[in-house]
């Protein structure tokens, strides 16, 4: 009897082995994006723009045309791409430092212009690639290599709620936060990512999707404990949900 294949690698993914640390949820996110590209049948019509940071090698994993941007500037690069190819699906992926610290200007203004692009934002509340420094989304009290006693809000301020911030802009069509720390949330995250792409394909405007991720290596926790830590510390500060959906007008 022939064995029926029920689970396989998405066609939009390459055969390259991912470089992510054990337990990191970046790989799930990149796979979800590939599944969405497959399901929408847009692999040959997609141009991706990548970040600097932990996801810097995502061009190795997605089998689509790709531009590697400088730190923080992916939304500006994506703007240049989309203006030249308005008929293509253009999306960017950035981490928290990339999008909410050094690249705050670029994401805010791409959003304000209502660029017809989809921006994915992976928030793991720490700088992973550089070895665990404080991120703009580091939770108050969270220990990092540059907040060794925990983030002290009197000196280091508060985490940036970028996705909520963008929701108030008239240029933004869709703003949502999801997480991939449980199977149910993975399924939900995929739906939201797909919605962001569909909004662009319908010409409805700019979409931002924030995806909460773990970083066991730099959090100094096991993968299982990381998920618990995310539930206990990240989710209360960065709630999951849609902050703006198509048709809504900012008040």
């Amino acid at each position: 009897m022939a064995v029926k294949k029920v689970f396989t690698k998405p066609a939009s993914m390459t055969d390259k082995t991912m470089h992510f640390c054990p337990g990191c949820t970046h790989g799930i996110i990149q796979r979800l994006v590939a599944e969405v590209i497959d399901e929408l049948g847009i692999r040959e019509d997609t141009i991706a723009v990548g970040p600097v940071g932990c996801a810097v090698f995502c061009y190795d994993y997605w089998d689509v045309d790709f531009q590697q941007a400088s730190h923080g500037r992916a939304p500006a690069v994506a703007t240049g791409v989309k203006r030249v190819h308005p008929d293509k699906v253009v999306f960017s992926l950035q981490g928290d430092g990339d999008i909410a610290a050094i690249g705050t200007t670029e994401i805010v203004h791409a959003a304000a212009r209502g660029e017809q692009i989809s921006c994915l934002f992976v928030n793991n509340s720490i700088y992973g690639m550089t070895g665990g420094q404080m991120a703009p989304t580091t939770i108050v009290g969270q220990k990092t290599t540059t907040t060794p006693d925990g983030r002290d809000s009197s000196r280091a301020g508060y985490p940036v709620k970028l996705t909520e911030m963008l929701a108030v802009l008239d240029g933004v069509t869709y703003s949502a936060r999801v997480s991939v720390h449980s199977p149910a949330n993975v399924v939900k995250a995929k739906k939201v990512i797909k919605k962001a792409f569909e909004i662009q394909m319908k010409g409805e405007g700019f979409a931002i999707v924030e995806i909460l991720s773990t970083c066991p290596t730099n959090w100094g926790l096991s993968p299982v404990d990381s998920i618990k830590w995310l539930e206990d510390n990240v989710l209360p500060y960065f709630p999951i949900g849609e902050f703006k959906t198509p048709g809504e007008v900012s008040s």
């Binding site: 500006a76 703007t79 791409v81």
Partner: peptide
């Protein structure tokens, strides 16, 4: 900074 990166993309 944004302008030159838009140039990069285009």
């Amino acid at each position: 900074i944004s302008a030159i990166n838009m140039v990069f993309g285009a």
